[in-house]
Nucleic acid binder design. Structure first.
Length: 688
DNA sequence: CAGTGAGCGAGCTTCCGCTTGACTT
């Protein structure tokens, strides 16, 4: 073979093969081929922060084969991704080949080719315009890699000493954890307040309007914002409203265009799949991987909303044929990434062929069909005409018959929405319309009172994060990359920093809180939400040749190392808070506490070490044991880490099962049912 | 199919980002 091409992924290799023909052999590197060693620091801080690279054990075989394949090759093409990491992979590949190759490949014998979309035109064009490896870009990647190593491998051992063994800290994971902890503290500090919403049902009096009852909501009392704080104030308002005369004060109406959402990136796909299908990001990614490997969708790890011109053209043609000319905008819709930190090495996530709908998928699991359907709809919709909605706002004055003072003047409002043209809504079974349809009303028109409905409410704290919303906020701050979002969250679980609560919400554990407290006390600059963005500025300078990696590292390392040393000597060991429970130890009568062990949470006697009683924590499944009917069904792990379901009364009750036991009358949890129901509705905002 | 925590303090743990695999249960 005269021509050898190396890319990252086998799927990309296969696709490229179709464009390049039989004269090109295409191999995959499976991502990075070299890395800093796991078992040592690997950065020579005294000599220009020189990184020590090793080939990981599990990659050795593959790398050796790659090197062997280069023997006798005339042209070597490095076609890794067109971003910082891709450039570094290409450079590391070259280094490994030079090092290992008996033929001593001369440096002129390679070509670096880059393309932003995997289409025949783009690929052939790239191959006719090869370039050399961009050393500045490689240096920027090394700076990123080394900085992460400095932070991670210096602060983790500090945690072992000052908090608890086997913990970890890092530029990305610790900020993710901080988001969760900060949110939890907001919730803890939140004071709920009572307020009342007062709705009145009314209808018009004319023949055209009297049949339709609609709802108006109290907005102002005596010209001021209505603030009904308690039952007494609510009763007073209700009495007045029952006896009032209602007149339309104003009617305003305008047509509003509703634009479709941009096509999916990794993060927005994860959020949408969580909301609609109830998938955790990990599951979304593994299903998407399978779709990708079967050639059904484009690459699933991307931060770009770009679309290839061919994909847009094909979609526009499809829209015109299937929905008609009215649903096709005059010009294609082009989307731009909001974040300056995006690298945009790939396209947005879209079907490879818009003609294939989810029910026409070849062999595919139901998960794959559902996820594909989301991706397909989002792609079609993003090139469709906007919907036109008529939005009406009505103000109504309610004047008490007996009262003439202004302070008793009530103003109520209603908002209405009516679809004038459905546009892209057509693709979804349910349009994202939240307001009622109002009758045609005129200023000065009297209304008939039908009913008044006072509702007691309480202000609610901000919601806990889910995996998907946590990823959304990480992305918003430029923290982490599409390939690391799901794994980062797994790390937080593995370290027992966070745990999953009811309804897929995430809460920090005492260990998580203590770790954040420690890190923020001494290293608040590194775990500031803007640290990564500032780091990216420095990396940009290196990539543009305006700064050098060693100098940039030194600027960080000097004060950092000093701080680490000082904290190592001076800081006290942190105390991790212990949660007590209402459970009483049946052996000694002392209360039980929650402890964290190798296998997660368990109940232990607070009298330890005098009393060594432990038992399983009644948890998650909410099911009674089918055997003894007394204990709860709890998830457990074998020594090998495999999950199974057992009885909390173990060892008294020996019930155990590899699969989740099913109760005959068990109803699905309300949140999953609700999210399934909306599965065909269009989202209103999934990337606020 | 099933253990765990503390302290003596052995020897080990740990980062982010790129990518799929599967000698052993």
């Amino acid at each position: 073979m005269k021509n050898l091409v190396i890319v990252e992924s086998p799927t990309k290799a296969r696709t490229l093969g179709q464009f390049l023909g039989p004269d090109y052999q295409i191999l995959a590197s499976m991502g990075h081929v070299r890395d800093l060693p796991k078992g040592e620091f690997g950065v020579d801080v005294d000599h220009n922060f020189e990184p020590k690279y090793v080939i990981p054990k599990n990659k050795m075989k593959m790398v050796n084969q790659l090197v062997k394949s280069t023997e006798g090759v005339k042209n070597l093409y490095l076609a890794t991704d067109p971003d910082r990491e891709g450039e570094a992979i290409a450079w590391n590949l070259l280094k490994v080949i030079e090092q290992k190759s008996k033929a001593k490949l001369a440096s002129q014998k390679y070509e670096r080719v880059v393309f932003h979309e995997i289409t025949k035109d783009a690929v052939l064009d790239a191959f006719s315009h090869p370039r050399e490896i961009d050393q500045n870009l490689v240096e920027a990647q090394q700076a990123r890699r080394v900085l992460d190593r400095l932070v991670g491998y210096k602060l983790s051992p500090l945690l072992w000493k000052k908090v608890k063994s086997k913990l970890s800290a890092g530029r990305v994971q610790s900020v993710a954890l901080r988001l969760v902890v900060d949110r939890e503290r907001e919730i803890e500090a939140f004071k709920s307040e009572e307020y009342w919403v007062i709705e009145v049902e009314v209808s018009g009096q004319s023949s055209a309007t009297r049949d339709q009852v609609f709802v108006i909501t109290l907005a102002k009392i005596g010209g001021k914002k209505a603030e009904v704080k308690n039952q007494k104030e609510a009763d007073e308002a209700v009495t007045d409203l029952k006896a009032a005369q209602y007149t339309v004060e104003s009617v305003s109406s305008k047509e509003v265009k509703k634009y479709p959402n941009p096509p999916f990136t990794t993060s927005t796909l994860q959020q949408r799949a969580a909301n609609v299908l109830g998938f955790v990001p990990k599951r979304t990614m593994s299903v998407a991987q399978s779709l990708y490997e079967n050639g059904l969708i484009t690459y699933m790890r991307t931060d770009s909303v770009n679309l290839s011109p061919q994909a847009i053209a094909q979609t526009r043609k499809f829209i015109e044929e299937k929905y008609g000319k009215n649903y096709l905008p005059e010009k294609p819709r082009l989307y731009k990434v909001k974040s300056r930190l995006a690298q945009e090495a790939h396209e947005a996530i879209r079907p490879t062929s818009i003609k294939v709908t989810s029910d026409q998928l070849p062999v595919a699991s139901s998960d794959e069909k559902k996820l594909y359907d989301l991706i397909w709809k989002r792609m079609v919709v993003c090139q469709m005409a906007e919907a036109v909605v008529n939005e009406t706002a009505v103000e109504v004055i309610a004047n008490s018959k007996q009262q003439t003072t202004d302070s008793k003047k009530y103003l109520l409002r209603a908002n209405g929405q009516q679809i004038k043209f459905d546009g892209w809504y057509k693709v979804y079974a349910k349009a994202p319309i939240t307001e009622q349809v109002l009758p045609d009303l005129e200023k000065g028109e009297p209304l008939d009172f039908k009913n008044v409905n006072p509702q007691q409410k309480f202000t609610e704290p901000p919601p806990r994060y889910t995996e998907a919303t946590l990823i959304r906020d990480l992305e918003k701050n430029g923290i982490g990359r599409p390939s690391t979002y799901a794994p980062t969250i797994s790390t937080l679980y593995d370290r027992l920093y966070i745990e999953k609560m009811e309804g897929k919400k995430i809460a920090p554990t005492p260990i998580g809180k203590t770790t954040v407290d420690f890190l923020m006390k001494y290293f608040s600059d590194i775990f500031d939400y803007s640290f990564t963005a500032e780091m990216e500025d420095d990396l940009d300078s290196i990539a543009q040749g305006n700064a050098e990696m060693p100098a940039t590292m030194k600027k960080f390392w000097g004060p950092f190392e000093a701080k680490v040393e000082k904290v190592t000597e001076e800081a006290d060991k942190m105390k991790v808070e212990v949660e007590t429970t209402d459970e009483v130890c049946e052996k000694c009568g002392k209360p039980m506490v929650i402890r964290y062990g190798r296998f997660g949470k368990f109940l232990a006697c607070s009298g330890f070490p005098d009393c060594k009683n432990t038992k399983a924590l009644n948890s998650d499944t909410g099911m009674k044991c089918p055997d003894c009917k007394e204990g709860d069904v709890v998830t457990r792990r074998t020594k090998r880490g495999k999950t199974f379901w057992g009885c909390s009364n173990w060892p008294k009750c020996k019930f155990a099962s590899w699969t989740k036991p099913k109760l005959p009358s068990s109803l699905p949890k309300d949140d999953s049912a609700a999210s399934e129901k909306t599965s065909e509705g269009a989202e209103t905002s999934d990337q606020a």
